[in-house]
Design a protein around this nucleic acid. Structure first.
Length: 876
RNA sequence: GCGGACGUGGCGGAAUUGGUAGACGCAAGGGACUUAAAAUCCCUCGGGACUCCCGUACGGGUUCGAUUCCCGUCGUCCGCACCA
């Protein structure tokens, strides 16, 4: 009866082979079952997989295996986000080639992923650095160009001085490059842009429909898109105060209601009027220089002191020709938002208030809070931006803010200034166009040619792909394509004259903006997508990845899918129907007295009455146990998945990753926790072996349970099955695991008393059912162990090919239930009664309870509250 | 500064979404088996003045009933950051 210990090393390799031979996880595009597309964010081939990958792919695999068992045709592919800077850095260090480094890493990591036993369709594997992938990206770039979705313009860009390349706005975090961490500089360059801002409103509206996305991510995208409604107003310039030719100043405001509180105008240092005025004023010129210098450094942004310079220019107030306002150049006004000019109303805008307090321009409140008398309302250091009624504003007095906004808009729309309305309603967005030019070698070449005569000429589709040359060197920084001796030189496709290839490559976020579509038919050579397959499989039903892509990747993909729709590559707009963002894997940190970090492998632990202590294995020195932080090389708190899988097996690693912590939260990797999971693997193995001896043969049907014991087993089986289904459905893997453990605990106690054998047919049938259900329940989490158990139970085909157990809802309902009885909301007793008892009998039986009688101590009952099947509350 | 999330035993967390707070696990303590260890099994495990009372950061409110809803305070974490 005692089975040998389960040996994960042998079993896992064995079953991985079986799955591969049987092509269990290969997915056909012509399958009539309902489709389900589950995808985890594909990895960057950095070298080896880390615990974050293990967690991400374990979760995706549970979903994939569960949905497959439930009868869906599941698409679960894997690929490589293979272009990018680290490959070039590695090539530079090793005097090698980025491709060699990348493909070697892919081979290693593919092997590691396979050792996890993931139910992936490897026949669909893609790598974005492969010409068979990026040629299609080039084709789509040309289609986007033809459709007017691409722009080439000279603009101020974020320059990363370490990586020698440009970064998109989304890739600048706290003034630093997202990858290099270098402080980003501003440079003026001609760059390629994808016109994501054309879709600002659509991308914003689309968020409302993404009800299976985390609210947090939707909010972040909403803020990033940054819609605001307001009014563009042109102020007439007093010609006697301004350089010649300047007649008006156009501003954007969301608070036209506060126009009578205006104290000054402010324009950005790069504003054309500022430049014009600076041409005649060297002091102003110096001030503008100063603003530019300070503008981008982290320190300058943090201190954010508001400084300004009065240009001497004066403008007319739109509602009072006798009222003039001074025009300042101010460092806090941004040229690339709105018109690069504002009017300042200090009483109701903190920034403007700081500014006037510094330059002594005063303030006039024009919106009065509801609970203050207008005469008493003064603003000194804190601007008021709440609700209220208009004051000190002539014809607006007494109005609400929305009414006043409307009134100002209505009036100024009808005023004509220089042949046009003085004001027009305007919606602005923070979202900027997506700069995709990168001055790097290891990326997808932008397929255009520059001809002196014809300008920018697209590469003819027949000439695609524009392939990266192999003979490149990385002995110096910068773009290897730029210094290649011949690659650039081509003849113009249009006129045949000597011309130059574009040497910029695409941002790697372009590569990841459509890979999910390519997976639906990665074989098609003529087109980026097979429309039929793409429209069938997309959107991705469940996408799983890290929160760090909340804006970058997830916003770009939403845009790119719309652009693909517009250019006829697919017929959907939203790529990801359901999104789940998983938490990080964290680990304790260990630090020696000298501040050096220790890896978990270099530590031994001692727990005594004074608590848990860590000591260096080598020197015996006591080491400080620090907080749990994201696993990182710098803090040396990493654990290598290979070691774990080698020691405990993939199932243990997967199980541990899914238990305890809710998936969206960080999980702390602990040695004790892993050992707990490993123990459970053996416990299940013993249980299933025992059950196989007591259970009826495979295929014995359980029609009726004829006795109490069989019935109890069946009820436990179906009750926990129902909860596991519910938990997996909500991606609550931790509670699914708790329910599986409850069932196995129940079964362990149930068979504990059995001495020799079971003779009762009903009980044998119930154990057969319980064992078969149990194994299929944990199969998505621990697929290898499940296969081994399934086979012990006498099944001949793999559990990965069998269907999910059928729930019998009748067995989750009890005839008798136990209701807690409260008196005035405090629990005083319990009542066990028929589940279908009516309220009258519940009340009658409640009053018979001794504990209740005692608690009542003769007082009369005011009210009886019976919540069916939940609780009884007696109010006295 | 603006926006958001969260706060439950020694620890990770659960609570059918307003109905028995602490499921499941980790750690710890006690015991059995063993020459011993590992493995395994059994018991205890929020606090207390222990037929009862207190307890879900703190203070209030709504309710028959609040971990859950509302208001305020404190704390932690995250995102955006001069966006007019």
């Amino acid at each position: 009866m005692t089975a040998e210990r389960y040996n994960p090393r042998e079993s896992e390799a064995k079953w991985q082979n079986v799955w591969e031979t049987r092509k269990t996880f290969q997915t056909s595009n012509d399958d009539t079952r309902p489709k389900y597309y589950v995808l985890e964010m594909f990895p960057y081939p950095s070298g080896r997989i880390h615990m974050g990958h293990v967690r991400n792919y374990a979760m995706g695999d549970v979903v994939a295996r569960y949905k497959r068992a439930r009868g869906f045709n599941v698409l679960h592919p894997m690929g490589w986000d293979a272009f990018g800077m680290p490959a070039e850095n590695a090539a530079m260090q090793n005097k090698s080639h980025p491709a060699r480094w990348t493909y070697a890493n892919i081979a290693t990591m593919r092997g590691q992923l396979k050792s996890m036993g993931l139910s992936l369709d490897w026949s669909r594997e893609i790598a974005t650095c492969d010409p068979s992938y990026y040629r299609h990206q080039q084709k789509m770039f040309l289609d986007f160009l033809a459709a007017g979705l691409v722009d080439r313009k000279r603009s101020k860009v974020n320059w990363d001085p370490d990586d020698h390349t440009v970064l998109a706005n989304e890739q600048v975090i706290d003034g630093r490059g997202w990858r290099s961490g270098a402080i980003v500089e501003q440079r003026e360059l001609t760059q390629w842009f994808l016109k994501i801002s054309d879709y600002s409103q659509e991308l914003l509206d689309g968020l409302d429909g993404l009800d299976r996305w985390p609210e947090k991510v939707r909010l972040m995208q909403r803020n990033w898109i940054g819609r605001s409604e307001g009014l563009m107003i042109r102020f007439e310039v007093d010609g006697s105060t301004a350089p010649s030719g300047i007649t008006e100043l156009e501003i954007f405001t969301t608070r036209p209601d506060t126009l009578f509180g205006a104290k000054f105008m402010a324009i950005a240092p790069d504003h054309p009027i500022a430049s014009a005025a600076a041409a005649e004023n060297s002091e102003l010129k110096a001030f503008i220089e100063e603003c530019r210098k300070g503008g981008t450094s982290v320190a300058a942004i943090e201190t954010a002191e508001k400084i300004g310079y009065d240009t001497g220019i004066r403008v007319q107030h739109p509602f009072d020709s006798n009222w003039q306002l001074p025009v300042y150049v101010a460092n806090f006004v941004l040229m690339d938002y709105g018109t690069g000019a504002i009017f300042g109303c200090p009483a109701h805008d903190q920034r403007d208030l700081d500014f006037v307090n510094k330059y002594g321009l005063g303030n006039t409140p024009v919106v009065c809070p509801p609970d203050i008398r207008p005469d008493d309302f003064k603003v000194t250091d804190v601007a008021f931006d709440g609700e209220g009624r208009l004051i000190n504003s002539r014809f607006l007095d007494g109005m609400s803010i929305p009414d006043a906004k409307e009134e100002v808009a209505r009036r100024l729309e009808t005023v004509v200034l220089g042949n046009r309305s003085q004001a027009k309603r305007q919606i602005n967005f923070k979202l900027r166009d997506w700069g995709i030019s990168r001055q790097r070698y290891w990326g997808c070449p932008i397929p255009v040619i520059h001809c002196d005569a014809c300008g920018v000429v697209p590469v003819p589709v027949g000439d695609l792909p524009v392939q990266l040359p192999d003979d490149v060197t990385f002995d110096q920084p910068g773009n290897a394509l730029e210094r290649h001796p011949t690659w650039k030189s081509v003849s113009c496709p249009s006129c045949g004259a000597a011309a130059r290839r574009e040497t910029d490559t695409m941002d790697t976020f372009v590569d990841s903006s459509w890979y999910f579509a390519r997976f639906t038919d990665p074989w098609i050579a003529e087109q980026p997508t097979n429309q039929l397959a793409a429209n069938h499989w997309l959107p991705v039903d469940q996408y799983i990845g890290g929160i760090e892509h909340a804006i970058l990747h997830l916003l770009y993909s939403r845009f790119f899918t719309r652009a693909m729709k517009r250019t006829g590559h697919c017929d959907i707009s939203e790529p990801f129907r359901g999104l789940f963002t998983q938490g990080m894997v964290v680990h304790e940190t260990y630090r020696g007295r000298d501040g050096g970090w220790f890896t978990p492998n270099e530590i031994k632990f001692v727990t005594d009455s004074s608590g848990r202590h860590a000591y260096s294995l080598e020197t015996g020195e006591e080491v400080t146990i620090g907080s749990s932080e994201k696993m990182s090389k710098s803090k040396r708190n990493t654990v290598d998945p290979d070691d774990i899988i080698g020691t405990f097996g993939a199932d243990t690693a997967r199980w541990f990753m899914l238990s305890d912590s809710p998936p969206e939260r960080d999980v702390a990797w602990t040695e004790e926790g892993v050992q707990g999971s490993a123990r459970y693997v053996q416990q299940l193995w013993r249980l299933v072996n025992d059950l196989s001896e007591f259970a009826a043969p495979v295929g014995t049907s359980v029609l009726t349970a004829m006795n109490v014991q069989a019935n109890a087993v069946r009820k436990a089986t179906h009750t926990h099955l129902a909860r596991v289904e519910e938990s997996i459905g909500r991606l609550r893997f931790n509670t699914a695991i708790a329910e599986i453990r409850k069932l196995s605990n129940t079964l362990i106690s149930s068979i504990a008393g059995i001495e020799t054998e079971v003779t009762d047919a009903a009980v044998k049938a119930a154990y057969r059912e319980a064992a078969d259900v149990l194994v299929r329940m944990f199969a998505p989490m621990m697929p290898h162990l499940a296969e081994e158990c399934w086979s012990v139970l006498g099944h001949t085909s793999p559990v990965s090919e069998s269907s999910w157990p059928t729930l019998n809802p009748d067995l989750t309902i009890n005839d008798m239930i136990t209701l807690p009885i409260q008196i005035n909301g405090k629990k005083r007793g319990e009542l066990t009664i028929e589940a279908d008892a009516d309220n009258a009998s519940i009340e009658r039986e409640t009053l018979k309870l001794e504990a209740i009688q005692r608690a009542l101590s003769g007082q009369s009952v005011k009210k009886f509250i019976v919540v069916p099947k939940r609780i009884v509350n007696v109010v006295i």
